[in-house]
Design a protein around this nucleic acid. Structure first.
Lengths: 103, 103
DNA sequence: ATCGTTTATCGTAAATAAACGATATAAGGA
DNA sequence: TCCTTATATCGTTTATTTACGATAAACGAT
């Protein structure tokens, strides 16, 4: 019987781990984005507008940073009526921490 | 008696911690540089030329990546006659790991 | 003194990132 | 329906990154 290939069956290769890791690092390579992560950590979740208020940057710039974090998988955004509520994606954060630990 | 100000006396501000952290992340935001770090971790120290051999990149490009890691403080290079011997800077690496832990 | 080896730096081209204002979109309230 | 609010996206400018080949600098060996 031929073996079925499911993504979950194959542990990520060393190389794809490194790619994952470098992507997270890139997402965290800007002070504004680190501040966003720390803020979300401290208050659990946050409306986009509060994040804009927190940072000395234009709304469009903050939106760009949020997109960057979202694309890296570090945060998730949930629509709440008119607003977007952001929170950390702890799975990704934990995977990242583990990999840093093994540095 | 006026208090003398030594750098070491002032714990780094939140902000300068964030700057430090973002710099390290930027240094680790490229797969080649992560490979260099992992390699140095696994063999403790390494002549520049071996690192060049390890990576599918031109010598000048690798030299640039090494410079980037050195400027971030992650590695140190020691002249050994004609060659340069690179090794990790564990102090910086440990400080980074601690900060990741507190994410 | 010259030659080969090793590494760093320079110059440059192409790609990506960061910032902004302007504009689009979507939801809620009048 | 129209207006306001909240957020995302577009278009643009400027700066930075990545990669390379060519060249320079330092050293050891001949």
């Amino acid at each position: 019987m031929p073996q079925l290939l499911h993504e979950e069956d194959n542990p990520p290769s060393d190389d794809s781990n490194i790619i994952f890791f470098s992507r997270i690092c890139k997402a965290l390579s800007h002070p504004a984005r680190i501040k966003i992560i720390k803020h979300l950590k401290s208050i659990d979740q946050c409306i986009c507008g509060r994040i804009v208020d927190m940072l000395p940057l234009a709304q469009s710039t903050v939106s760009q940073h949020l997109k960057c974090l979202k694309e890296a998988g570090l945060i998730k955004g949930a629509v709440e009526g008119q607003r977007i509520c952001y929170c950390l994606n702890n799975d990704v954060l934990e995977r990242f921490k583990k990999m840093v630990g093994s540095l």
